[in-house]
Design a protein around this nucleic acid. Structure first.
Lengths: 340, 340
DNA sequence: GTGAAAGCGCTAACAG
DNA sequence: CTGTTAGCGCTTTCAC
């Protein structure tokens, strides 16, 4: 071991200069070896690697980031870590990022544009090489911010006209559910959540089957949806109490927690699922299989979303030139279970 | 705007020197102003701040980290992002870290000691100021790694003899469930999961009531528990099929997904919950309220765990001197619902 | 092939 | 109070 003073008592870390001294080469050569740059004699290379191994040397990524202007860090902004869907997406992002030598800084925006903005600023100051930003609903103001002076960014789980994005087609998701209800002979229709593209797809397909938009019931209002885990049940109760169901109603919920809330509310009021109330959720999170009745849900390929998002982002990072917009549009799938 | 060449076309970032030039002061003064160091004339301070505002300047955290040997970055290592419990903990960690000016790098260890080791190494190379490491089960080899040349680290959700830690007492959790079953007149007992401290607490309390350890049924084996989301149901089915229940059995599951698996398996086999099979889970995740029957579960104060862990870690980071071990031991609470 | 040297953008002495 | 100066540990010319 070399005789070096520890300037930080808590974590001794060798430096390239030390390795260089030990190996009898210049520090630049150590750098070359570690970066696999061509043109280092086998002998010196071996000498360097020997000491790298002996000291379990790892180059300081901060210094590297500063010098190379490349941090190998990406930022992942999610609207809600407590939502299993986003937790899943994050897990896959982390997995693929790590696999490519990138670390992930997480930040929770709570879906607030204000937070999103601040987070993007701070990520930029941290020199992240790229940003993956998960949006819970349609467009957000951040997009403007994102378009100007930031590292490359990719919108995840929503489409965007101005930015690269990776997501399923929510419209298609809505279509799927509408067709399903239609086939099952449901005779009244509701949408549980804020009106977005899912709603649009649902409405349009129902419309083509002769169902007027005014006949589609809206459950919940348009802004409470963030704290969804608790609010779903209450909203569903409110709705069912004041809207007696006759025949068979199909409820398309914007996400699984809401769908559960609806099922539980129906049971609470003595209605049968799926006979009187047929329920379909969205995201196909693991709870779907673990509740009774099991929950039908529109499935998003989270692994693919996470993977493609990382791939696209890294491509943007690698290529210094701005390229044409890419909107990866994946296909949702209806997973039918007992609730519908 | 100053005339500066952008060396990185994609993200122009002003530097302190530029601010200094604009404000007519030295770069060091800019640094002082931004760090709130005492002893800068109001006039110069104002001049600096003016330009900081105008250019929306944010100091480069990488450079800052390198120079100050302080990154304001902490690493959070979790065994499983897909487990809602850890997602929750992570959310709270992120929240409190951000609140204190720290960003969080997440890494998924999948509970593999090998990964944990590699992650800790890479986090160290990234100069994180501290590490929060969530352990899914008892002690891990990483602890040895953690004890030597790393930044301060705190174990989260498990106790440790060698490290700072923040967690509930799992033994106490086991006691709670045992007492609950005893009070409810359950007459046979099972534990669903690998034997750990929860099991020990359960066993000991049952023992004091005269139940022999050999009479406590073990469900599942000791190593599959990681991919729990799918395996719970199967294991429960296997168990119930080969062990006909007579009277009333109490099943204490190591976590909520397992508990759900047990309930579903019981239903599948025509058994009534909680009359024939009484089930209690662990972690009290949001699913507990969203399934029918609602699931009894031992609750961990995730917010407090996350907060105290961050607080403790920051204290360690702040204080340069190693202090006495701190093991924050919180209390679990049994939330009784319909399943028991 | 390889070393010397100039930064990357900042913090932190050290002089005045 | 404030400017000058020396690094932090690395990447990257630029010579030889």
């Amino acid at each position: 071991m070399p005789e070096v003073g520890l300037k930080n008592e808590r974590a001794f870390m060798a430096t390239m200069s030390e390795i260089a001294q030990l190996a009898g080469v210049s520090q630049a050569t150590v750098s070359r070896v570690l970066n696999g740059s061509a043109g280092v004699s086998a002998a010196k290379k071996a000498a360097v690697m020997e000491w790298v191994r002996r000291l379990d040397f790892q180059p300081n990524s901060t210094a590297r980031a500063l010098a190379a202007n490349r941090s190998h860090l990406i930022g992942a902004v999610v609207p809600d870590l407590l939502n299993p869907f986003f937790a899943e997406i994050l897990a896959h992002i982390e997995h693929h990022a790590a696999h490519n030598g990138y670390s992930v800084i997480v930040a929770n925006s709570a879906g607030e544009p204000e937070n999103e903005r601040a987070i993007v600023k701070s990520l930029r100051a941290r020199q992240v090489d790229g940003i993956l930003i998960g949006l819970a609903s349609g467009d957000s103001d951040v997009i403007d911010e994102l378009k100007k002076q930031t590292p490359p960014a990719v919108i995840v789980t929503q489409e965007s006209n101005d930015m690269d994005s990776v997501s399923v087609s929510h419209i298609e998701g809505g279509n799927l559910v509408a067709n399903h209800f239609l086939r099952e002979g449901v005779d009244s229709f509701a949408f549980f959540g804020p009106h977005d593209e899912k709603y649009a797809g649902y409405r349009d397909t129902l419309g083509r089957a002769g169902v007027r938009e005014s006949d589609i019931h809206s459950i919940g209002n348009q802004d409470w949806w963030l704290n969804m885990l608790s609010r779903g049940f209450e909203s569903a109760m409110d709705y069912l109490r004041s809207n007696p169901v006759q025949g068979r109603m199909g409820v398309f919920a914007m996400n699984d927690p809401f769908a559960l809330g609806m099922i539980n509310a129906a049971h609470e009021l003595g209605m049968r699922v799926p006979d009187q109330v047929s329920v379909v959720g969205f995201d196909n999170t693991f709870v779907c299989d673990n509740v009774r009745p099991t929950l039908s849900s529109v499935s998003q390929p989270t692994e693919e979303i996470g993977r493609r998002a990382v791939e696209l982002l890294l491509k943007r990072i690698e290529a210094s030139v701005p390229a044409e917009l890419v909107n990866v549009e994946l296909h949702p799938r209806l997973v039918r279970r007992e609730s519908s």
